[in-house]
């Protein structure tokens, strides 16, 4: 009768696991995925699936070779793969995308110790690597098949901000313009945002402060139509999916607030002063690097704690 297990309490656990969280993120990205196919056709779906599969394969092979426990079932590689695919235009050559996947998973994630240990967002580094390596392919923004507004077809909306008026706003909002696969449809991203918040996977602090600060500083820096700046390019996708990655964002609400504001400020600054199409990526990556410092500065105050003498 001494078949009894001994362990420290608690003897029950909640239902949330790393896998359920990642599954929720994937579900939240589904509207984006559907809209990318709607706008760009089935090649979008093909790229997204290949990217996800490549990430999973990278992680699996790496762990197999290193004789480590296989962790692909936590679905985090799928999330990374989808995110990276959403960040490239539909015309991207497949092999280039796979290079990005390898950089994201092997270099940024596995070399630093796997899930939870990377200090920058893998998908974002993958994106930046592709951006500097294949600048032409990465900025070859294709247009949605449903584009109807001339102004939107003339260039990427971000480059043509001055020519737009609010009548075109809805078109912009549902993604009828040019851009990378996952970023064009703000509506789909915001549906995912609401899902993540309702499911308590993320807190709304970072996305809201990020978007708010971008708006504010775009206006301060003299953008003609800051609202359009917000709904074009990658701010919304970055704020909702990239800047809320647990590993590379601060723990506490105060820390998240600082992080969101920092991202927003840097995005607006980079966009206004350097005209870089990678404003969102660099802004989030720079803030990723500051996370350990933000965490140190924003520790919680233990309840009833007395300051050390």
């Amino acid at each position: 009768m001494s078949n009894l297990t001994l362990s420290v309490s608690p003897h029950i656990r909640g239902k949330i696991t790393t896998r359920t969280i990642m599954l929720d993120v994937i579900i939240a990205m589904c509207p984006v995925l559907v809209m990318s196919v709607y706008h760009f056709g089935f090649r979008a779906l093909l790229l997204e699936l290949i990217s996800a599969a490549a990430c999973v394969a990278c992680e699996y092979v790496w762990e197999k070779l290193r004789k480590q426990p296989i962790t692909v079932m936590d679905l985090s590689a799928v999330v990374t793969g989808l995110m990276l695919a959403f960040n490239v235009p539909v015309t991207m050559p497949i092999w280039e995308l796979i290079v990005g996947d390898i950089i994201a998973i092997i270099v940024v994630k596995m070399l630093f110790g796997g899930i939870g240990c990377n200090f920058m967002n893998p998908a974002l580094v993958g994106r930046v690597a592709l951006f500097v390596s294949f600048t032409g392919d990465m900025t070859n923004y294709s247009f949605s098949r449903h584009v109807s507004v001339d102004a939107l077809t003339s260039a990427t909306p971000l480059a043509a901000l001055d020519k737009l008026n609010f009548g075109d706003f809805w078109e912009l909002f549902i993604g009828n313009h040019g851009g990378v696969m996952g970023e064009v449809c703000s509506l789909a991203i915001l549906i995912g945002f609401v899902y993540l918040v309702v499911r308590k996977v993320i807190k709304p602090i970072i996305p809201l402060t990020y978007m708010g600060t971008t708006l504010l500083f775009s206006w301060i820096f003299g953008q003609n139509q800051p609202v359009l700046a917000l709904f074009s390019g990658g701010v919304i996708f970055g704020a909702v999916f990239m800047a809320t990655d647990y590993v590379t964002t601060p723990f506490t609400n105060k820390g998240k607030l600082i992080f969101g504001i920092g991202c927003g400020f840097l995005t607006a600054a980079i966009r206004c002063f350097s005209n870089s199409a990678g404003g969102v990526s660099f802004a989030i990556l720079i803030m990723n690097l500051l996370v350990p410092y933000i965490n140190d500065l924003t520790r919680t105050r233990p309840f009833g704690g007395v300051k050390a003498k």
Binding site: T18, Y246, F251, R299, F303
Partner: peptide, 28 residues
């Protein structure tokens, strides 16, 4: 019910901090 789940890597989600009644930081 007696099964003890295998621990996996911390994903730094901060749920332990959010749910600590005494505002401690288990992850740290």
């Amino acid at each position: 019910d007696a099964h003890i789940p295998e621990p996996t890597a911390c994903i730094r989600c901060g749920l332990c901090i959010d749910h600590c009644p005494l505002n401690l930081m288990p992850v740290e």
